[in-house]
Write a protein that binds this DNA or RNA. Structure first.
Lengths: 209, 209
DNA sequence: GACGTCATACCGACCACTCGGTATGTTTCC
DNA sequence: GGAAACATACCGAGTGGTCGGTATGACGTC
């Protein structure tokens, strides 16, 4: 069964979970919270999920699939130049910073903080989701490297992790400050770094590392 | 009463809270957990703290004070050049990535993720701690800017937030991957970016932004 | 009539917090 | 100096509410 043919109640529960967990955290959200948000009864919940932890794992996967198709359909893929596609990704991430933190923030980053030591299955699900998202960036990074910085010593994968780290960390500051301004500013720095990395006139700076 | 003259039991409870919350998250840690870790009774806990939330606020402050003096005493402050001091900070952060994630990870980043919407007092305490840590970096950033990039359009504060975002985000990946390797790699990218920002031969790249 | 999809009442473990106490100082006042 | 009065630190068995999970039955649909 693919994600698209989930039963409607189950889908509503999963979507509700994304919202509630992102705003209250995992441990603090109760099953009743999710049922209320989804307008579904508890009996229905336990018909579709074995346990709260089971929901978390499925919610993480649901999140990954939704965001994957969300980014797949974005415009920035159309650019011919791989560097433009990469910078387009960063710009796109900046452009979707609307509403409150729970709206634009990453479920997996939130979830894993609470569960990495105590809930191995959830940690694994978060790992898979985040890694898949990074993997989707790799072809563009590799292509841009081949074209603009073939001699560079850093790996495409390392760049992918760096990009995601900036995003995840910036989300924390969005929560602290209750506004996305610092996210935008950090993404501007990230964008500048990528431009510098892929501009040919700075190979000298690489030697210092 | 200053922080240094806390009663021993209270100090043990605060230190235990730092450990337990960083490994299990805030909502999932019970007061009994903390008492056991601190080898202190529950009665003693409620003698020193009004509530669990009260502990969280005090733990955040305790964390800020401890880390502040920890960084204050580090060697990198001795460098003459402000840029060296800044890069020294980054290197120092990389050098303390030992043990498991709960050991080197930031309490405030973990705490705020769970509480920013539901516990205003805790969110504020996290904000104050993180802001104070960034403020401590500002003089060096400003001095480095004055010396190496006086024309730059970015602000020192923005750099401070960017540095902390990279760190906080990298910690999330340390938890996902259960090892600090990606943190080190991201810090290497951060270091390279700072070097590029403060090298005189890239003012042209600034105009693209 | 059997299966999938719920709805409702309920259970019991857990957990933040209370409360009546003890033990050990410390101050006050004659 | 010493007794009374008070303060601080601590103890740990409750308690009341919450929450994950269960039991049982109803309703439709094939």
């Amino acid at each position: 069964m693919t994600a698209t043919e989930q039963h409607e109640s189950k889908l509503r529960l999963l979507d509700a979970a994304l919202d509630v967990i992102r705003s209250k955290g995992y441990a603090a959200t109760t099953i009743d919270d999710i049922c209320q948000e989804a307008a579904v009864t508890k009996g229905s919940f336990f018909h579709h999920f074995k346990s709260k932890d089971d929901l978390a794992v499925e919610a993480a996967r649901h999140w990954s699939e939704s965001t994957q198709s969300f980014f797949d359909n974005a415009e920035y893929h159309k650019a011919e130049d791989p560097l433009d596609r990469l910078l387009g990704y960063v710009d796109f991430r900046a452009s979707i910073l609307n509403g409150d933190a729970p709206c634009y923030t990453c479920l997996l980053g939130t979830l894993v903080q609470e569960t990495y030591e105590t809930h191995p299955a959830i940690r694994t699900a978060c790992d898979e989701g985040l890694s898949a998202h990074i993997d989707a960036l790799l072809p563009d990074i590799e292509a841009a490297k081949l074209r603009y910085a073939p001699e560079a010593t850093w790996s495409a994968e390392g760049i992918g992790y760096f990009i995601q780290s900036v995003l995840q960390g910036a989300f924390i500051f969005a929560k602290v400050k209750q506004k996305p301004d610092t996210v935008r500013e950090s993404l501007a720095h990230l964008r500048r770094y990528l431009q510098l990395l892929f501009s040919s006139d700075q190979q000298t700076a690489q030697q210092q590392n």
